[in-house]
């Protein structure tokens, strides 16, 4: 997984399903690893493979027409379990951006902490993206983090998206939260000294 994100032009993989929970993204039985690597293999495992480990033909990740570094999904993406393994699986598979009209909170944080950009768009724009890909699976999307813009290249339709300035700087420059928190050591210790009890 790359440690920065700035700009991307890519085709996208559409999964027009709502409420995709992290148990679908990476089922619990694959959470036994003790490193962060190799989770991509089991991304959407039970949607991708049947019980005999044969690829399911009708699932989009098994359709070679659809590929790219952008995943587009229905609303409330990443709900459920807090497992960061979901973000690792998405990143390890090769996605750098996930687009939805709504993200679950913990997933969004986990994605950002792994330099994957979650982009929230309106329901209408999400529909437009799905339509554009339906019309032409080779349709490209352009993401510019500096400008906070997302464009459907073929039609030129563009919207801007929100991201908080701190996280934006982290992504662009490759810092993480621990670097920042470690720099606050003095403040943390003086806070502790001011509290009598552990609550």
């Amino acid at each position: 997984m790359s440690k920065t994100f700035q700009h991307l032009v890519s085709t996208a993989v559409p999964i027009a399903i709502e409420n995709i929970d992290t148990d679908q993204i990476i089922p619990a039985r694959f959470l036994k690893a003790t490193t962060r690597d190799g989770f991509g293999e089991n991304l959407f495992r039970d949607w991708r493979f049947d019980t005999n480990n044969e690829p399911k033909k009708d699932f989009i990740l098994n359709n070679p027409i659809y590929k790219g570094e952008v995943l587009v999904a229905g609303k409330n993406f990443g709900c459920g379990s807090s497992r960061e393994h979901a973000a690792w699986a998405i990143g390890d598979y090769g996605f750098k951006v996930v687009i939805s009209s709504f993200f679950a909170d913990i997933f969004k944080n986990n994605a950002l902490n792994n330099f994957i950009l979650p982009i929230t768009v309106t329901d209408e724009f999400l529909d437009k993206i799905f339509k554009a890909i339906e019309t032409d699976p080779a349709a490209q999307l352009e993401v510019d983090l500096e400008k906070q813009s997302l464009k459907i290249v073929a039609t030129g339709e563009e919207i801007s998206f929100d991201i908080n300035p701190y996280k934006k700087a982290c992504l662009i420059n490759g810092y993480d939260d621990i670097d920042y928190l470690l720099s606050l050591r003095k403040e943390i210790e003086s806070y502790e000294a001011s509290r009598e009890f552990n609550f």
């Binding site: 807090s82 960061e84 909170d105 913990i106 944080n109 986990n110 908080n164 939260d177 920042y180 928190l181």
Partner: peptide
């Protein structure tokens, strides 16, 4: 009557390292 919430593994590391977490007020 506690503020208690779930976090991801990167955040587990933050808390182990600093006893703090970075959060926006919900």
């Amino acid at each position: 009557g506690a503020i208690a919430f779930g976090i991801g593994t990167s955040e587990v590391e933050q808390v182990l390292a600093t006893q703090c977490i970075l959060q926006y007020r919900p």
